[in-house]
Structure formats: structure tokens, C-alpha cells
């Protein structure tokens, strides 16, 4: 079955099936290196933003500045790398698939 990791591939298939690719062929395609880079950048930055935001909020609440901020900064970076990894790696995740 489908996996969110294979998004790019399914996007291509869906675009081909719906005939969306025709107007794209001439101009810069969304699969260009720029498009990939932009997507990856958005994924990293958004994970980092969430991590830093969570760290800030918890620090304000618990009064532990700056320790939780530092911890969540690292966790956010890891989550960003994980997001990019999932974006590029179509390998299905080893997780309960029977459901």
C-alpha cells in the first residue's frame, strides 16, 4: 500500500495520470533540484521551529531557561533531518503494517 515516504513518486504518477505534466514539461518542473531543495528546507526549518517553540514554551512554564530550550533545539534538528530522510527515502518504515 502507499506510504507517505513515496510522496514524490506518487505525485509524479498522479500528475501523469491526470495529464497535469503537459504544461510543466516546457517550464521549470516541480521536480527540479530547486523544488527539492525548497521542500527539504521547509521540512528542516518547520521541525526546527516547532522544536525551538516547544523548548521556549516549556522553559517559560517551568522556569528552567535555557536547558529545555537547548534540548528541544537538538530534538528539533533531529526531527528535521528525519523529515528530510523520509522525504527522500521511499523505504517503507518498519512499523505495524497489518492494522
Amino acid at each position: 500500500m502507499n506510504e507517505r515516504d513515496s510522496f514524490e513518486e506518487r505525485l509524479r504518477q498522479a500528475r501523469a495520470r491526470e495529464g497535469l505534466d503537459k504544461p510543466v514539461k516546457g517550464g521549470p518542473a516541480p521536480q527540479s533540484p530547486w523544488g527539492f531543495g525548497l521542500r527539504a528546507g521547509v521540512e528542516v526549518v518547520s521541525a526546527l521551529v516547532v522544536g525551538v517553540g516547544l523548548g521556549f514554551a516549556l522553559d517559560r512554564w517551568l522556569g528552567t531557561w535555557p536547558w529545555l530550550f537547548l534540548v528541544f533545539f537538538v530534538l528539533g534538528s533531529v526531527a528535521g533531518v528525519l523529515n528530510v530522510y523520509r522525504l527522500f527515502n521511499p523505504r517503507p518504515r518498519s512499523r505495524a503494517r497489518d492494522e
Binding site: 521542500r39 521547509v42 521540512e43 526549518v45 518547520s46 521541525a47 521551529v49 516547532v50 522544536g51 516547544l54 528541544f72 530534538l75 528539533g76 533531529v78 526531527a79 528535521g80 528525519l82 523529515n83
Partner: peptide
């Protein structure tokens, strides 16, 4: 202790990446 916060942040970051894109 590492995987769960990372996965939670990754899940939350969907919101941000979806809107920022």
C-alpha cells in the same frame, strides 16, 4: 526518550511545513 520526542516534533511540524510552503 529520544525517538518519541523526535516523532512528536516531526508530527507537529507537519502543521508548520504545510502552511509555510
Amino acid at each position: 526518550p529520544i525517538i518519541i520526542p523526535v516523532e512528536v516534533i516531526s508530527y507537529l511540524s507537519r502543521m508548520v511545513s504545510l502552511s509555510v510552503r
